[in-house]
Every structure is written in structure tokens, then in C-alpha cells.
């Protein structure tokens, strides 16, 4: 089955629509949205409406730290991440807030564990950004039966961690569009990147497609109308920083 993995959409409607369309075009049979649906971006209500539509058709939807902040902005604090939480909270209707509040932190199905950040204590939102933290996430996930694949977002970078011939995990920087063989007898941790706020200097949206039958993961980069997304942020009166970073992909 081809499972499209989208994470860190961050209320970027243009990027979200572009990735969903791309995934459908390359044969996605099911969607999984790994959290941070809102925050930073200018279209939280519209994005959530789209997410809820996908969920009705069987999509897996998880909660991210920004989704939690949008529900209870008073707990977000004065961090950069929390700075748009109040505004986001005000854009959502009570039903949408209730929907976010009820989202699960993880989803376990067959050999796959999906989580927004790390499988190690998911509610702590730990970053999986090096071999050690990837190992910790994998160790926690391995407590569940049969887990071979841990897919997450949160860090806004596309990275694959795998086991070579040594004991620890190794880091691999994937090339967009190349299906990577990921046989089931090994264990894998992947961060699939961010749909709505890429930070690696390339403004194109990121997502990944996991083909469980072929045991292949393909990281994708999708060009979208980031100028319109940035303009929406400016029009909404949100900090200029969040608009320029979409244009720069930083």
C-alpha cells in the first residue's frame, strides 16, 4: 500500500494542497498527517477543514506541539514557536479546537509507528536530529510488537537513519524522488520533513511516500505557490519573519 506521509503543514494551504495533489498523482492510497497541522501559517481554518475531509476518508491524523498550543495558547509561553498560537486559536471554531484536542500522539499499524516527534515519550516533543536521538526513538518504538519503521516530522528536515554493519544508527541524506529500498528485516527511522515550512534553503514543500508492499520510501520535494502563502501571512498581520522564511526556505 502506498501511504503518503505529510507533516508540519503549519497552516500553509498552498503547500498542503500541492503535496496532496502530488501524492494523489503518484498513486497515494492513504494519507497520514503527522501533526503540526497549524501554527506559523495564515490559513489554519482552511487547512484543518481539508485535514478533516481526508480523515473522513480514512487518513491517519496525529497531534503535534503546535496543535496543542493552538488549543491552549496560554500554556505556549513567549517562544518563537508560541508567538502565533493566540492568533491561530482565534481563527479556529470550537469544533476544530475540539478536533485538535482529541488527536492521538502516535499510530501503530503493522510494522509502522507514526509519531509527530520522537517515539521516546511522545508528549515531550523531543527532536530526532542525530543518530543518538534516532536511536532513542527506535528503542522506544521497538517495545511495540513488529515495529520496523518509525516515521516522524517535527524537525523540518528529511533524513533517514538506518543500521549499517556497526551497532549504532547511521545518518543518510536522501535524494528527492529516488525510491530507497528499506527491507523489513532491518529497522529504520525517518524524519519526513515539513510540508508548510521548509528550513533547508529550498522553498519547495517536503513529504514522503512509503510503499509497504515494495518496502520503499521516497522523499519528495514539491514546488508550490509560496509567494501566495507568504502574502497571506503578511495580510493576516502575522510577523514578517514567517513570510520571508517561506520565500527563502529557511
Amino acid at each position: 500500500m502506498k501511504l503518503a506521509l505529510l507533516s508540519d503543514i503549519h497552516a500553509n494551504l498552498q503547500a498542503f494542497d500541492a503535496c496532496v495533489a502530488h501524492a494523489r498523482a503518484v498513486g497515494a492510497e492513504r494519507f497520514a498527517l503527522l501533526g503540526d497541522l497549524v501554527g506559523y501559517g495564515a490559513d489554519p481554518a482552511a487547512v484543518l477543514a481539508g485535514v478533516m475531509q481526508l480523515a473522513e476518508k480514512g487518513a491517519i491524523v496525529l497531534k503535534g506541539n503546535h496543535d496543542e498550543m493552538a488549543v491552549t495558547p496560554e500554556g505556549a509561553g513567549k517562544t518563537l514557536g508560541g508567538s502565533t498560537a493566540d492568533w491561530t486559536h482565534a481563527q479556529l471554531d470550537p469544533a476544530q479546537r475540539a478536533y485538535l484536542a482529541a488527536l492521538p500522539l502516535t499510530h501503530h499499524e503493522g510494522a509502522t509507528l507514526l509519531v509527530h516527534a520522537s517515539a521516546e515519550d511522545p508528549a515531550r516533543w523531543r527532536y530526532v536530529d542525530d543518530e543518538r536521538s534516532a536511536n532513542a526513538s527506535l528503542d522506544a518504538a521497538a517495545a511495540l510488537p513488529d515495529v520496523r519503521y518509525v516515521f516522524g516530522g517535527h524537525v523540518h528536515f528529511q533524513t533517514l537513519f538506518y543500521r549499517g554493519t556497526g551497532r549504532g544508527l547511521m545518518r543518510f541524506a536522501p535524494t528527492a524522488g529516488v525510491p530507497i529500498p528499506m527491507p523489513r528485516h532491518r529497522q529504520w527511522v525517518a524524519t519526513i520533513g515539513s510540508v508548510g515550512q521548509p528550513r533547508d534553503g529550498d522553498p519547495r514543500a517536503m513529504y514522503a511516500m512509503f510503499d509497504s508492499a515494495a518496502a520503499q520510501l521516497t522523499f519528495h520535494r514539491v514546488a508550490y505557490d509560496h509567494a501566495t502563502a507568504a502574502a497571506a501571512i503578511r495580510r493576516a498581520g502575522l510577523p514578517e519573519y514567517f513570510a520571508t522564511r517561506l520565500e527563502d526556505g529557511r
Binding site: 549499517g164 554493519t165 556497526g166 547511521m170 535524494t175 529516488v178 530507497i180
Partner: peptide, 12 residues
């Protein structure tokens, strides 16, 4: 293969 993780690699 430059586009695949090198399964023969290890930290040491």
C-alpha cells in the same frame, strides 16, 4: 550507490 544508504558502512 550514492542514492542509497550504505549498508556496509559503520561508525568505526
Amino acid at each position: 550507490h550514492a542514492h542509497y544508504p550504505d549498508l556496509l558502512a559503520e561508525e568505526l
